[in-house]
Amino acid sequence: MCAIDPINTSMKTLQTLFLAGLLVSAISCKKDNPDPIDSFEETISSNFTEIASQTIDSYTLTIYAQSDLIVGYNEIYMLLMDADGSYVSDYEVHPHPMMEMPMMMHATPFEYPKVVDTEKGFMRASTTFIMPSTAGDWHLDYHVHVMDEEYAFSFNPTVVSPEETRMLSFVGPDEKSYFLALVSPTAPEVGENNFEVVLYTKLDMMSFPAVTDATMEIEPWMPSMSHGSPNNVNPVHDELGHYMGKVNFSMTGHWEVKMTIKNADGTVLSDALAFDITL
């Protein structure tokens, strides 16, 4: 299992690659087949799964994820290529994820893309799917603004339920629905792990804002042994509804990370939450 946060890993790989690319370009006056773009693509293809790709006029938008899209928090990466096959570095994206069910439609929580690599226009966004594709059709629409034009890309991805639930929904005493998704650990291991969750609430069918003023407590627990682990750090709000803490796993096996969430008044929203995490 990989000990390091995969995003950081890929970032580091990318950075290394760019340095390597610079190096190769420096030497390129002598050799004439340096192709950092090929290597960039190799890095992308070896670290990410291509989810879909669509061409509208002269632009092709390709979206990637860490793995298959799952119910829960998904990082979605994107690259835009023009007709010449060059990466577009200057563009804006407005995501519109939507679930289409026989009787209704609803959106799902998401985050706007942020640029990961300025030169290649490589962006990272996120979507927290709150149900699998078996419930209906997911439409992942991206309105891309480039050179003052808007292109409406539309994807129809399949969202599966992961083996271990990574998203919990509950209704608080305030009668609001909440969606709590596990961001990290993605590759849990013995020892200290970053514990990151993201919390959203539902205002209406189309609006799922992040909750930024909750307080959280965690307690890792091994149900088959009835013990926990010491020295955990409760997640605290970082930004955009992301809460960061630390969780310790003293051995491999099946752990539950039990969570209690309170709102800004200290009212318990739920104390019956638990993520199953198997190492």
Binding site: M222, S224, M225, S250, M251, T252, G253, T278, L279
Partner: peptide, 12 residues
């Protein structure tokens, strides 16, 4: 290594 019923084995 511990072997709980119907669950992943535990190792330390």
């Amino acid at each position: 290594t511990m072997y709980p019923e119907n669950e992943a084995e535990m190792y330390m």
